[in-house]
Design a protein around this nucleic acid. Structure first.
Lengths: 349, 349
DNA sequence: CTGAAAGCGCTTACAG
DNA sequence: CTGAAAGCGCTTACAG
């Protein structure tokens, strides 16, 4: 007995083709194509009949064939080395969301920090004729382990270091830091410390400069920012450094932290010392990593880099390049926003 | 003046085609194709000459054309509703890693919990003729907002609820829970409590049953598991419940927690009460969310669900379905592993 | 108003 | 040993 219908996999049935639609409607393939695409001239009845036939048969045009002709695949590649995904995922989701509505699909390429993997993925993207590539990473001062500088297709960099002359989108870290410090000032805080990550990160300096700048503009003196690790442990330590020296008057009444983990360590350490947050000392973090920010006691006010919007913008920027619109090269900085919770204190009175 | 070379976008130059390679090598397109694919018979010199020409011209075959012919696109769709990405990302990275070496690329489809988005993505995948689909989510007892049951292409479910009769991969939660409890027993702990998430989650019951089972097998009595939220706050509360009642003898000497956030809350609450971890009470978490597990004091022992492996397995399972290998339908449970840090205590003596 | 032809870039029988 | 032909599924000038 030959394999019977029951045992054959359901998915063996091939998709219906335009040829079948045309035959069923009694027209040529060319006419069918034009009917479905709203091209050409024909009676409204013919067009409608063909459309109805297509609908009935469940016809969906084969993208591969269309892409071959149009020289547009309606796909883009998304390169990332952020396996852990704290920064990448919202960004990737933003890209995907912005593009799905335009019929563009996104290839996920995890390149780690591995040249071989990077090359493998870029070649796969090129072979599959993606319309463009978005490169993203976990920090804006490092390159991905791939060379994207001489491709035939447009490239947009988002939250990773762009090649010179390319289009790049990053968060406005200086602006984000200003938001935090200015908020403290508005709340009446005057001795605002800054506890942040390692000197090896560009954002550490960008944010520290902004912190210093705002204080100076307001006639306040600043000490040095405290550089350390991006960790809770460092937040703890930093509190010791800040509060073990000097008298009450030299101690901060607010601490702006370089990320939420540091802020969490700071808050825990302050509580252990009996220093009240926000009454005695206000705390603001950076990243608005919700699961951390909402678990601190009190919940943490934090600067959000709007990574999903950044992803959306990157997707749209790439599309307009693909469509041949010229884009100004260079780095575009997108605004951050301050998410106010309870750790920073309320306005006086 | 017509647009000069300087101002034209670099990426306007179209890729080199097989026809050009053939012309350059002085052979027909058919011969060129066979030479590059190792098909047909021809002199070694001819083959080598064609290959060399292709290399020189930087020829890369157009995947779209190949896919059209072969009826295989070497792409798969990856559906997820885990925007936050704690579970999805390692899984997605695993899928991508397993497939990139086989020349298969992965479309990222963020469907949220939105039917419309789900449908949009599934149609896009079908139109692009993906070879198969992997569905993944943030919990194993919920469906994605899409119907994948009657597609023409194979589907594998990973870390989300499969359709009946489909192939599904999940972590062995019961096994993972056993690992934790048995480890405590080996360490000499006897009064092992269980603090976990809400009753609405299937894994809450799976893990609680396993906890209860191991204790019974060892002749130990168990109380009821403490159900609550997946949060630090609940971990805190649970410690109050466990330690405010009964005398010293009724209090646990070990707590197995349903996730790492709960475990973190538990550890913090114990410390605040002056109860030493692990000396007085051992703690084990679940998920092995490194950034949390490593920040607890002491660092947290936790059950790891091996999500990257799960992703790899899912990718390979899908590929073998695509290749026509029959796969046993049903749910396959993949083992967890215990990552031992300092919160559970050392062996006695 | 509709269809036949050519073609996107490739592969695979089939001739010679 | 090599090439001409047909074809994957579609679209788009061009005739009629």
């Amino acid at each position: 007995m030959v394999s019977d219908a029951e045992s054959a996999p359901v998915f063996a049935k091939p998709p219906v083709t335009l040829r079948e639609v045309a035959a069923a409607a009694g027209v040529s393939v060319a006419t069918a194509s034009k009917a479905l695409n709203g091209q050409g001239r024909m009676t409204a009845e013919t067009r409608e009949r063909i459309r109805e036939t297509a609908r009935l048969l469940g016809f969906r045009p084969n993208s591969l064939a269309q892409s071959l002709l149009r020289k547009r695949s309606f796909t883009v590649g998304l390169l990332t080395n952020d396996t852990y995904g704290r920064f990448s995922l919202p960004l990737m989701a933003g890209v995907s969301d912005a593009l799905v509505d335009k019929g563009v699909s996104v290839f996920l390429c995890n390149v780690e920090d591995d040249q071989r993997l990077g090359q493998l993925h870029v070649e796969a993207m090129l072979d599959k004729r993606v319309d463009g590539i978005i490169a993203t990473g976990k920090r804006i001062d490092r390159h991905l382990p791939v060379d994207l500088s001489n491709l035939r297709i447009p490239v947009v960099y988002a939250f990773t270091q762009p090649d010179p002359g390319a289009v790049g989108l990053v968060s406005d870290d200086a602006g984000g830091a200003r938001l935090a410090v200015e908020h403290f000032l508005r709340l009446g805080r005057r001795r605002i410390a800054h506890v942040t990550g390692p000197a090896g990160f560009a954002v550490v300096h960008t944010r520290a400069e902004a912190w210093r700048g705002v204080l100076k503009e307001n006639g306040l003196t600043t000490g040095e920012p405290l550089l350390g690790a991006w960790s809770e442990g460092w937040g703890h330590e930093a509190v010791e450094k800040l509060f073990d020296k000097a008298g009450r008057g030299g101690q901060p009444d607010a601490i702006f932290c370089g990320n939420d983990q540091i802020a969490r360590g700071v808050i825990d350490a302050l509580r252990e010392r009996g220093i009240r947050v926000p009454d005695d000392v206000g705390v603001i973090g950076f990243d608005n990593w919700e699961i951390v920010a909402e678990a601190t006691r009190p919940p943490l006010t934090s600067v959000d880099m709007n990574l999903a919007s950044l992803g959306r913008e990157a997707g749209l920027a790439l599309l307009s390049l693909v469509d041949g619109q010229p884009a100004a090269p260079g780095i575009r900085k997108l605004p951050c926003r301050l998410v106010v919770r309870q750790s920073c204190g309320s306005p006086p009175g």
